[in-house]
């Protein structure tokens, strides 16, 4: 579906944000794009959406270069940036003006999403707070039913109930053909809904695996047992002892701790890669 082919991009000539960067995203699933500040997550989203021109390489969406910004590919990609403007008009008017550009837009879906966030369709967009605007805009974004939805820091500005509803809202809109790529720092807001994890470092993809495979290979635990902490691939001190990552040698289902995984990938990327390339069970 998305082929990021050897792209290089720099805002300043000598400090590339992405260099010879490649990534492949298959249709269907929720992808979490994680990385440090300045790792190029938002830049990557803009490059995928065709909003930036790579210095080298290209991004293909269903075989079409997104940079050409052809109406057919732009109508299949919706980006919700971290900050955005909405005009001071009613939601109904906004929908009547904008929905015609998206052939798969569904009013029924929109009402369902608005219900999830406890919003009513008779909103005036100009009178909403930033968080409510974000909710309304995300409802519209999902109701457009574009095959690719890019969300940049979607939970920033949402209140605590809003964050939990966001998870429900995303999961309820998924189908086999839709891909959602979420770039965020707020890993705890999204860790339970992700199907794939992509961790990027400047210039490269550190880690790119489906959650099911991660959980089949790794165990995430919180423990105070010294022996387990010493045996762990990665440990991070926490209130109850330490959050640890162990090889999943006994096929136990544990809950993904995205924060620990992210830290592990940044601290010791090679050990993490080895855990997936080698048969660690053996």
């Amino acid at each position: 579906m998305i082929e990021v082919q050897n792209i290089s991009f720099a805002y300043k000539k000598r400090t590339p944000v992405l260099k010879d960067f490649s990534l492949s995203i298959a249709p269907g699933g929720i992808y979490g794009l994680l990385g440090r500040n300045g790792a190029g997550k938002s830049t990557l989203l803009y490059l995928i959406a065709g909003l930036l021109k790579p210095d080298d390489g290209k991004v293909l969406f269903n075989g079409v270069d997104t940079r050409l910004r052809k109406p057919s590919s732009v109508s299949d990609i919706f980006i919700v940036p971290e900050e955005f403007d909405l005009p001071s008009i009613s939601l109904k008017k906004y929908l009547s003006l904008n929905s015609r550009f998206y052939p798969n837009f569904s009013e029924e879906d929109l009402h369902r999403h608005l219900d999830t966030f406890e919003l009513t369709p008779d909103l005036n967009l100009g009178a909403l707070s930033m968080g409510q605007k974000k909710k309304a805009f995300m409802c519209f974004a999902l109701a457009c039913n574009t095959p690719l939805l890019l969300l940049d820091e979607p939970t920033n500005g949402l209140d605590i109930p809003g964050k939990s509803r966001f998870r429900k809202f995303i999961v309820s809109s998924m189908n086999d053909e839709r891909t959602i790529l979420i770039s965020t720092h707020q890993v705890r807001d999204i860790d339970r809904i992700l199907d794939y994890i992509i961790i990027t470092e400047t210039n490269r993809v550190l880690f790119d695996q489906p959650v099911s495979k991660i959980l089949s290979r790794l165990k995430f635990m919180t423990t105070d047992k010294q022996q387990l902490i010493e045996d762990a691939l990665y440990s991070q001190p926490s209130v109850g002892g330490a959050n640890i990552i162990l090889p999943n040698t006994d096929d136990i289902d544990t809950e993904l701790n995205l924060e620990s995984l992210f830290e592990f990938a940044l601290v010791n990327p090679q050990a993490l890669i080895d855990a997936f390339t080698n048969n660690i069970n053996a």
Binding site: A49, L51, S72, S75, I77, E83, F84
Partner: peptide, 11 residues
């Protein structure tokens, strides 16, 4: 924000 809105209109 304005640039994203203008450029991402499918036209």
């Amino acid at each position: 924000q304005g640039r994203i809105r203008t450029l991402m209109v499918p036209a």
